[in-house]
């Protein structure tokens, strides 16, 4: 088992270390967006909590992983740092995402989970990327682990069997 990096709300990180693991706990309406580089075998993850950094541009400078629009470029930078400056073109990148749950809401105003997931897809699209695997929505929390060795994402939720994407 390699080194585990635990990411809190708004954190992001990358690892190219053999058997490294990126993990984040209890995603509610937050979304874990993960990028895997097929060539360098580097993997990254951001725990995104909100769709747009415009609500606090100054804070977004120091906490880019918190917002969908600033998290994607932050992930690219962290992957470059982990590989000594190498990041493959979009064709060699695989994106996975999960989380973005919503509480039941008849008026559909309290849907930050859904808006987070959409904002991430929009941000990815700017770079010619789209999620290969998407496990978002529902009304349950998710804990997520991404394994560098296989690129597999393991998801757990209280009262459910674990599943993988």
């Amino acid at each position: 088992m390699g080194k585990s990096i635990i990411l809190g709300v708004g954190d992001f990180g990358a690892t190219a270390e053999t058997n490294g693991i990126l993990k984040t706990y209890a995603l509610g309406s937050c979304v874990a967006v993960m990028i895997l580089d097929k060539k360098t075998r580097c993997v990254s993850m951001a725990h995104v909590a909100l769709p747009e950094s415009t609500i606090s541009p100054s804070k977004a400078m120091s906490l880019p992983g918190y917002f969908a629009d600033t998290a994607i470029p932050a992930l690219f930078e962290s992957m470059k740092r982990a590989t000594g400056g190498i990041l493959s073109p979009a064709n060699d990148l695989i994106v996975k995402m999960c989380g973005g749950a919503n509480v039941s809401d008849t008026n559909n105003t309290f849907n930050i989970g859904k808006r987070n997931a959409l904002a991430i897809k929009k941000a990815l699209w700017k770079y010619g990327l789209a999620p290969r695997a998407d496990d978002t929505g529902g009304n349950f929390s998710r804990t997520v682990a991404l394994y560098q060795a296989t690129g597999i994402v393991e998801i757990s939720s209280p009262g459910k069997e674990n599943w993988k994407i």
Binding site: V9, A26, L27, G28, A101, V103, G113, S141, P158, G159
Partner: peptide
């Protein structure tokens, strides 16, 4: 609950 501090199975 939405921001990751729930109490297990009833979260969300």
């Amino acid at each position: 609950m939405m921001s990751g501090s729930g109490t297990g199975i009833d979260t969300m």
